[in-house]
Amino acid sequence: MRILAIESSCDETGVAIYDTQQRCLLANELASQIDAHACFGGVVPELASREHCRILPRMVDAAMQQAAIDWQALDAVAVTSGPGLMGALLVGTSYARAAATVHGLPLLPVHHLEGHILAFGLQEDLPPMPMIALLVSGGHTLLVRVDGIGRYRLLGQTLDDAAGECFDKSARLLGLPYPGGPHLSALAREGRSGRFSLPRPMLRKDNLDFSFSGLKTAVLHAANTLDQDDTQGHADLAREVENAICDVLVNKTLRACQQEKIAHVVLAGGVAANHQLRQHLQQQASQQDITCYLPALSYCTDNAAMIAYAAACRLQAGLDRQSRDWDANPRQSLFQNQNIPEAYGKTPL
């Protein structure tokens, strides 16, 4: 079975084709909009939608060429249905819906975070379940217990800012350009430990939740003590920011393993590409006989390959409900029981 997948929830446009028999990608196209948004210091939602709209058809053609197939050789279309930016999601879902209808193919909506959680399966067998997933990105910071495909339980989450947001905002406070996270990590490599001491929020709390907004404030105060031309000082602070974020993430993840008595951890999401986080988690997990599963960097950041793969997993698990009763949902939950106001549905968002 061959699945064509489209991802357009934020600022990456992705198109991929996955073959379930061969268990491999036939095509994996990705276009980043980072340059387009850099001058605004972040993703500009409407600009993102326009850019998705402009390049998506071309990317589907390119994916078909790369795979050397046409629409007749496809068996299903998968698309990210949420969460994300409404305008951006709508470009992908509208295109996918139209293409599936025209070519008479089933359409499979995929939750963006499910794509991230399962992304490791693109390179090797998925870890044994149950497993713990640490999902970290610009918009999310979650610890999830995964009991199987489609069976997810929330163990902990950020109570305010996401880890990726803390990276980005700290970078802004240090005068670094967008996207802040990678720039901050690069600067941190030049930094030395010891000069700054930032808090490790929530470590003493007996739960699996995170909080990064106070850390951001501490970074602000530390940054204010630095002279403009103190490049070493900036690097030292960047290093401490990275250490503080990683310490909290690794510590809580291992605590989740202990609490749930699970010895398999998968890392997922854009921040999972962070070298320091990967190294710390791997080292500390191995000391506790916990196995870490780290997706390749290109499968950590947003991509369509993970959407194709998640759709394939769902089909195999018998979870494909070919219902037409769904729509792009910027707040789609991976879990149930969300407290969303009734009046919310009356707005276009």
């Binding site: 993703v43 939602p45 989450q157 996401a162 947001e165 969303i340």
Partner: peptide
């Protein structure tokens, strides 16, 4: 959790009879 709307642009809540919308227009 009261997640930051920096990425999602808007977070909505129900508080009894009142609905609360928390927005961040920075990226717009």
């Amino acid at each position: 959790a009261l997640p930051s709307p920096s990425y999602s642009l808007i977070e909505v809540y129900q508080a009894g009879e009142v609905c609360v919308a928390h927005m961040d227009w920075y990226r717009l």
